[in-house]
Amino acid sequence: MSPTYVYGLVRSDAELPEDLVGLGPSGTVSTVVHEKVAAIVGDVPLDRPLGTRDDLVAHEAVVDSVAAHTTVLPMRFPAVIEEEGVLEELLEPHHDRFVRALDQLEGTVQYTLKGRYDQDVLLREVVEEDSGVRELQERIRGVPEDAAYYDRVKLGELIVKALEERRDVDAKDILDRIGPFAEAVSATTPTQPEDVVNAAFLVRRDGAEEFEAAVEELGGDTHEWLKLRLLGPLAPYDFVPEE
C-alpha cells in the first residue's frame, strides 16, 4: 500500500544507467515491467509534501539521465500512484498507447535552445537607429523623475517594441538555421523582451553531433550580440504525443 513515484516510461528491453538517484528517502530507482513497457519508479517521501527544489531537480536528473541512454517518455511532475496501481492502473490498461508513443519517439532526444540578446549591444543599436528614442531621452533629461514618469514609460515602451521587432526577425533566422537539423521544433514566445528564442528541438540521436555543431557554429557567428544556452540531450518533454 505504499505510494510510488513514477518518473517515466521506457521500453522493457531498455537498459537504464545504474547511478540514478530518486527523490524518495531511499533514493533508489527501479523499474516495473509489463510486457513491452517499463515504468521507472521510486519511493516517495511520506513526511512532507512534494515540490521542493531537490524534488524538481531529482525528477529532471532521473528522466534526463535515462534520456541520455535510451528513449524515455517523461511523466509530468509529480506522478504518484499506489504501488499496486503501477501495474493494474498504469501499465496494463495503457500499454498499447505507451508503446505507440515510445515508437513515435524512438531514437530521438530533445534539445532546448535559449537565446538572449546582449542587452547593452542591442540597446545601443536601438538608440543609434531610432530617432524617436533619442528624442525622448533628450526630453527626459533635466526633468524631475516624477514629472518624467510617463515619458520614461513611453521610452521603455519604444525600446521594448524595437527589441521585439528585432526578435521576430532574429528568432526566425535562428529557427531557419537550426530547424533543418531536427525532426520537429516547438518554439515558445519568450517572456522577456531581451529573450530572442526559446525552442525545443526533437533531434535524432545519430544526428545529435551535427545538431550540436550547428548550434556551436551559430554561436560563433552571433556571440557578439546573442547569448546562446543549449540544454541537452533531454527527455522529449515538449514532444510527448497527445492521446
Binding site: 517515466g8 511523466m75 509530468r76
Partner: peptide, 29 residues
C-alpha cells in the same frame, strides 16, 4: 566551440532551467 553555454542532461541544469523544462510538461494519465 565555447560560444554556447551548455547545460542540462541529468541534473546539471540550474533550477530555473529545470522549472522551465519540466513544469507542465510530460505525460499526464
Amino acid at each position: 566551440g565555447g560560444h554556447v553555454d551548455r547545460g542540462g542532461g541529468g541534473g546539471s541544469s540550474g533550477l530555473a532551467d529545470v522549472v522551465e523544462l519540466i513544469l507542465d510538461k510530460g505525460l499526464v494519465i
